[in-house]
Design a protein around this nucleic acid. Structure first.
Length: 401
DNA sequence: AGGTATTCACATGAAACTATTCTCTGAGTTAGG
DNA sequence: TAACTCAGAGAATAGTTTCATGTGAATACCTGT
């Protein structure tokens, strides 16, 4: 019977009208042909990079803007057009894009260089060689190409935070040593204060030009959503006001267009799953909650055992009182460790773990002083009880309690 | 009452250590000529 | 003698531990009125 029902479900699913025309246009990998409300920035970037077509070295550019402000897309848009023209006119020009945030790919000096070397077709072992060896390989690879190279470093702040600014110093200086090729760097950062922390020499050479991407406002996000929706969703499916509401939600927290697009996609999926042919504003609310919940569960499941044990301690305590402190958590955590056979970490480490859980947004931690009674982190959660119970279940399972 | 000094309970920083993964090198071993 | 194997040295990295220093404000302790 179950089988029959399942077959029926699938048959029904296939026969059903989808609300999507082309779902890809709402996914994060999609690159639209035209960028709305970013002409000024695109123009500026293009102006700075254009000299590369005449074999001059363009200035380095530094690009700032919050997440979802269209930085990456704009830069890719410009470099794509640039290389197309270069290829058509037989100008030796290459644009390399590297995302420095990707773990195990380009988040250290060694790995960044290894990544770049492999883009030149020189495979490099993931470890075992001294870093300056990799530099030499990279040098010779660049030198042999005889190209003008535009190096786009996305999320460059992550790289510097982990590996220090020595990498950038070396890269900005590399042109002094190169004879046949030239490199210019496009750094993308979403931390506005990032440049302040750099070594002044690096800073001045890296930000010869600067481009700032202000957050989109609600109107602009609305336009972007309309454009995407035109390509992605069947006409007439979206109810009046849906796009406006998505835009308003996204504009509320720093104008993140990516988030707005995700919200629209999940809303449409929700409607589709419920077998409804229109997307209403109620779907948006539901989608928003689900996105948040899914995110939390995903993060919780991903965490290493030690983090999970810490989180378990926090959630156990959070039911009983409204404010909990590092010391209490650590005591309970030690108990959990001995119960589960986990080797307890030091309090110093747990302190960092708590800070990281805060960054993930699973808990709220803030450092407070209780005067005579010391200084500590005050930790709270804003998860509602049903979510807490579910997380507890997941953690129990994972920790074997 | 008002001002200063203490003091707590951690936070925060830096350095050092550990375990793991990987390459390279050269000595020792093996098989074929 | 060439090819192969394998242990050991050297590197990079993530995750910790150890040691050292910092810190905000409630309280304790003065001080002069």
């Amino acid at each position: 019977m179950v089988e029959r029902g399942l077959v029926g479900f699938f048959e029904n699913f296939v026969g059903r009208e989808s609300v999507f025309l082309n779902k890809k246009a709402l996914q994060s990998t999609y690159t639209p042909d035209a960028m709305l409300h970013r002409n000024e920035q695109i123009q500026k970037i293009a102006e700075v990079l254009a000299p590369s077509l005449r074999k001059d070295r363009p200035s380095n550019i530094f690009i700032y803007g919050k997440t979802g402000a269209g930085k990456t897309l704009c830069v890719k848009h410009v470099t794509k057009n640039l290389t197309t023209v270069a290829a058509a006119k037989n100008i030796p020009l290459m644009a390399l894009y590297v995302n420095c945030k990707l773990k195990r790919t380009a988040d250290t000096e060694y790995r960044l260089l290894a990544q770049l070397a492999s883009m030149f077709g020189k495979a490099v072992p993931p470890t075992g060689l001294p870093t300056d060896e990799i530099y030499k390989i990279f040098y010779s690879a660049v030198e042999s190409k005889n190209h003008n190279i535009i190096l786009v470093l996305d999320e460059i702040d992550q790289l510097v935070r982990k590996a220090g600014d020595g990498v950038l110093y070396n890269l900005t200086r590399i042109n002094d040593d190169l004879k046949t090729s030239q490199i210019s760097i496009v750094g993308i950062s979403n931390d506005l204060m990032f440049a302040e922390t750099l070594d002044p020499r690096v800073r001045s050479s890296l930000s010869e030009e600067e481009v700032i991407f202000p957050p989109y406002n609600a109107m602009q996000i609305r336009d972007i959503l309309r454009e995407r929706a035109k390509a992605a969703i069947k006409p007439g499916v979206l109810q009046e006001g849906v796009i406006e509401k998505c835009a308003a939600y996204a504009a509320r927290d720093h104008g993140d267009a990516r988030r707005a697009i995700e919200l629209l996609r999940v809303s449409a999926e929700t409607a589709e799953r419920k077998n409804q042919s229109t997307v209403t504003t109620e779907h948006i609310d539901e989608a928003e909650q689900n996105i948040e919940k899914d995110r939390i569960f995903e993060i919780v499941e991903m965490q290493p055992k030690q983090y999970q044990a810490t989180l378990y301690a926090i959630i156990s305590l959070s039911g009983k009182k409204d404010a909990i402190f590092t010391g209490e958590i650590y005591d309970l955590y030690k108990g959990i460790c001995s119960k589960t056979g986990l080797r307890p970490l030091t309090q110093r480490r747990i302190s960092d773990v708590l800070a990281e859980l805060d960054v993930f947004g699973i808990i709220n931690a803030r450092v407070i002083s209780k005067g005579r009674y010391g200084r500590t982190r005050e930790i709270s959660t804003q998860l509602d009880n049903s979510v807490k119970a579910k997380i507890t279940g997941v953690l129990r399972e994972s920790l074997g309690i």
